[in-house]
Measured scan of single mutants.
Amino acid sequence: MPSETPQAEVGPTGCPHRSGPHSAKGSLEKGSPEDKEAKEPLWIRPDAPSRCTWQLGRPASESPHHHTAPAKSPKILPDILKKIGDTPMVRINKIGKKFGLKCELLAKCEFFNAGGSVKDRISLRMIEDAERDGTLKPGDTIIEPTSGNTGIGLALAAAVRGYRCIIVMPEKMSSEKVDVLRALGAEIVRTPTNARFDSPESHVGVAWRLKNEIPNSHILDQYRNASNPLAHYDTTADEILQQCDGKLDMLVASVGTGGTITGIARKLKEKCPGCRIIGVDPEGSILAEPEELNQTEQTTYEVEGIGYDFIPTVLDRTVVDKWFKSNDEEAFTFARMLIAQEGLLCGGSAGSTVAVAVKAAQELQEGQRCVVILPDSVRNYMTKFLSDRWMLQKGFLKEEDLTEKKPWWWHLRVQELGLSAPLTVLPTITCGHTIEILREKGFDQAPVVDEAGVILGMVTLGNMLSSLLAGKVQPSDQVGKVIYKQFKQIRLTDTLGRLSHILEMDHFALVV
């Protein structure tokens, strides 16, 4: 994948999101292997301009796509893939009243899908469409860049269908997702969380590099694949309309690839034109409109599966009536509230959605109805927002919020430890010299600072030695090549209790 991002070429006709291997024109390309080798690009942008032909009021008969309808489940399912879809609609009884809503608040519980998330729908649909058009064949390999849930859905379907599955996901995604993927037989590649989507090191860039190296491999490409919004247009939206008897006044959905909100909203605009569509985008993402909503100094966020630093091709923002931004604290607070007060075992993005819903639905009156999409299960986040310690460490809970008995030293300040200034190293000294210094002084790690004293990161003896043994660096290389740029900081005025929580999850903390 090139470091400079080429513009994806656009073909003359058809839909841009065809499933299957992508040609340089962004659509299915038939021909000899030699032709494909000559024409197939190194990668295709996940934010390529959409060429979708959908228009409100256009006859369904003019759609270029294969459409399906929700099917009634048999008493005995032939395999677990038949437990994807037909998820329950559940009334939220307490939270709406707590925040003064007059309307009825309903939750579409997508964590009841077989793999635990709304992404099971698009995973199965992308595979079925690729099999139907002859792209996927027995023994082929599926590769997908994902925040985890699409990966789980694909790995689940691949396990049943017999495909090899490789999932490329950023490091910030939970260990629970990784464990589930491994249990399903998927191979996992992790990428830096802070890598831009168009960087060769991003999950998108690495996935395309693997595709170019592995024979008979395919990126189904949830960011561009029409099967993504079509899955929701054909099934999720129809289920909502049936469950609500066609009567709903507002739908609120958090947005990642945009397939969920695009597919549902398009069908609702056709069948229930008075329904307002509300999009939820986390602070630090750029999906919301108008652009002024996205202006923030924050560039990272903890909530998973929603928000991006690019506009995915499948996201149709014209069908969203209003956007709201959400933050991590309210997302996790509301997710825990949904679990504790409503018994809905949902993930953090569901918290984002409901946090926005109780604001947006203030305009609705008694007798009206708001539906929220709860995308995934708490299963993926047992060591994250479900953990009091994690919430404390991230600053989303305060010590006084917890009532468990603490040891005698818990409320003492870090400054009472009488710490001395640490050994520091410059980023320009060599790895070999740094190892000598650390061994001589008896230290395992040291902060790396520039000549102005600005902290650049941390270097550890173990990481340097393993990097040297693996051949990633040489003793003569500058130590700046092996620094940890993500590390926890703590102030002298913070409590030892807070430091204790940090050290339970990290090997060190830097006192500043």
Rank of each mutant, 00 (worst) to 15 (best):
S217N: 06
S175A: 13
K102P: 04
S227L: 03
I84A: 08
M169D: 02
P12M: 09
P21S: 15
K25F: 08
N228W: 00
H218Y: 10
R164S: 14
S174W: 00
A237K: 04
P33A: 06
P6S: 12
C52F: 03
R209P: 01
G185Y: 01
D234H: 03
P170L: 00
L251P: 00
Q55Y: 11
I214F: 07
N228C: 05
K269R: 13
G185R: 05
W43L: 15
G148L: 01
P46W: 04
E213H: 03
G100D: 15
K108P: 01
I219S: 05
P70C: 11
L154V: 06
G14N: 09
N93M: 05
N216T: 06
L81I: 13
L248R: 02
L230G: 02
N113V: 06
L184G: 05
P138W: 09
R224I: 08
G116C: 12
T53W: 04
I80M: 14
K39R: 13
V90A: 04
Y233S: 01
R51D: 08
A231D: 09
L42I: 12
L101K: 03
V255Y: 03
A158G: 06
S175R: 06
G11K: 09
L181Y: 04
I240T: 01
R224W: 02
P70R: 10
L101H: 02
R196F: 11
I188C: 03
C103A: 06
K119F: 00
K83F: 11
S32R: 14
V178Y: 06
M126T: 07
D179S: 08
R132K: 13
T150N: 01
D79Y: 09
S23H: 10
W43K: 02
P12H: 12
G139L: 07
Y233T: 00
Q55F: 03
C272D: 10
S61H: 01
S23E: 12
H232A: 03
P64Q: 06
L248A: 06
D120S: 06
D86T: 10
K267Y: 06
H218A: 02
S254T: 09
T193Q: 08
I219K: 01
T150P: 03
A48Q: 09
A38M: 06
A155Y: 06
S32T: 06
Y233G: 00
A107D: 07
E29D: 15
G139A: 02
L220P: 01
L101T: 04
S73V: 13
G205E: 07
A195Y: 05
S175V: 10
P200R: 14
D120E: 08
A265Y: 06
P200S: 08
Y233Q: 00
G85P: 00
R51I: 07
K72D: 10
R164E: 07
M250Y: 04
T5H: 06
A253Q: 09
W54E: 06
T260S: 12
V255S: 02
T150F: 02
A60T: 10
K72P: 09
A253Y: 05
H203W: 05
G26K: 10
D221K: 04
G148W: 01
T5M: 04
S147Q: 01
I261M: 15
L136N: 00
V206R: 01
P59C: 12
I122N: 00
G85W: 06
E110T: 00
N113C: 10
C109Y: 05
P21N: 13
I188P: 04
D238Q: 03
L181Q: 03
A38I: 04
L28R: 03
N113Q: 07
K211E: 12
D86L: 05
D245R: 02
K39N: 15
I240L: 02
G263H: 01
L106N: 07
L154Y: 02
S175E: 14
V206C: 07
P6V: 03
R161Q: 10
L101W: 04
K137I: 09
K30D: 14
H66Y: 15
S61R: 13
A71E: 10
I167M: 11
D221N: 11
P192D: 05
G96T: 05
A226R: 10
P200H: 12
V252M: 12
L42H: 09
S123R: 06
G26P: 08
